[in-house]
């Protein structure tokens, strides 16, 4: 039977190991047909920014193609596809005020703007809620 997991994320991409763990957990839940809610707070609203671009690596001497640099927007886009393929739901709320102050309003298809009341609603309707804080 499918269940619902809610996560609150806070870390900006490319800085903390917690982003990786969160994406792994979301992948695992969706792969098993569970629904996932994400409340992206503070720097986590940057995870889905559309203007992220991969780059070559001058230290390793790799080209753009060889490096195949991942972006969190691509990974999260892929998680939305996974949800669809598995018949599960991925709801992703970007905290609107966090978006405004960071100028992070241009994001990939999927996430929607929201705020703390959405997080309360998520938590009330979920089987589990995990807050992954920043430090």
């Amino acid at each position: 039977m499918s269940k619902t997991l809610t996560l609150a994320l806070m870390d900006a991409p490319y800085e903390k190991a917690a982003s990786t763990t969160a994406l792994r957990l979301i992948h695992e839940a969706l792969s098993r047909g569970h629904n996932v809610n994400v409340f992206a707070y503070e720097g986590a609203v940057n995870l889905t920014m559309a203007d992220q671009k991969p780059h070559a690596n001058p230290v390793k001497g790799t080209s753009l193609e060889e490096e195949d640099h991942p972006t969190t927007k691509e990974w999260i886009g892929s998680l939305f596809e996974l949800a669809e393929n598995k018949g599960a739901t991925l709801k992703w709320i970007n905290c609107g005020l966090c978006v405004d102050e960071r100028g992070a309003g241009n994001w990939i298809p999927g996430p929607v703007r929201g705020g703390p009341p959405h997080f309360v609603a998520f938590a009330k309707s979920s089987d589990a809620t995990l807050v992954i804080p920043t430090k």
């Binding site: 997991l5 792994r24 957990l25 992948h27 695992e28 098993r32 089987d127 995990l130």
Partner: peptide, 19 residues
Amino acid sequence: AGMDRLLDLLLEPDTKAVW
């Protein structure tokens, strides 16, 4: 243990998860 175990633990009824 992997994420599968962590997910199982999280979704166990009446579980409080603290990170």
